[in-house]
């Protein structure tokens, strides 16, 4: 059942993004920023954790989940080390994803080449 909910919830979050793209003038970059900030806010309000435990990757793989990850990281760090945790928590939690993207980006640049789309 986990798999079904991951598919459905993940799909619905993407449909929400598609509606923003088709009906508003928001550029993709703005939609991504909106999603991440929305993730932080929803997580802070305590609304996102229930969805994440219900839909698994359906809630964590979309970029809202990235915002959720940042908020959770900050929450844990503040509880452990106090106010400094507000500075360190976000990047600590996001380190894996950002570093993986960075490494993959570099490797792709070394081995890949820009190609015509036509």
């Amino acid at each position: 059942m986990n798999f079904v909910w991951a598919f459905v919830i993940g799909g619905l979050i993407c449909v929400a993004g598609q509606l923003l793209m088709d009906y508003t003038k928001l550029t993709p970059a703005r939609i991504l920023v909106t999603y991440v900030v929305a993730g932080v806010v929803l997580s802070a309000l305590g609304w996102y954790e229930p969805l994440a435990s219900f839909a698994g990757c359906g809630a964590t793989v979309p970029l809202i989940g990235f915002g959720h990850l940042l908020a959770q990281g900050v929450l844990d760090s503040v509880e452990k080390i106090g106010l400094i945790g507000a500075l360190t928590g976000g990047f600590t939690a996001a380190a894996g994803g950002i570093t993986a993207s960075l490494v993959c980006g570099f490797l792709a640049a070394v081995f890949g080449q820009s190609k015509d789309q036509s």
Binding site: M21, K115, D116, S118
Partner: peptide, 17 residues
Amino acid sequence: FCAAERTFRTPLEYGGQ
């Protein structure tokens, strides 16, 4: 196309609709 795309829009491999 490719020179204009990277100047005016996004990198060629970027997934944009």
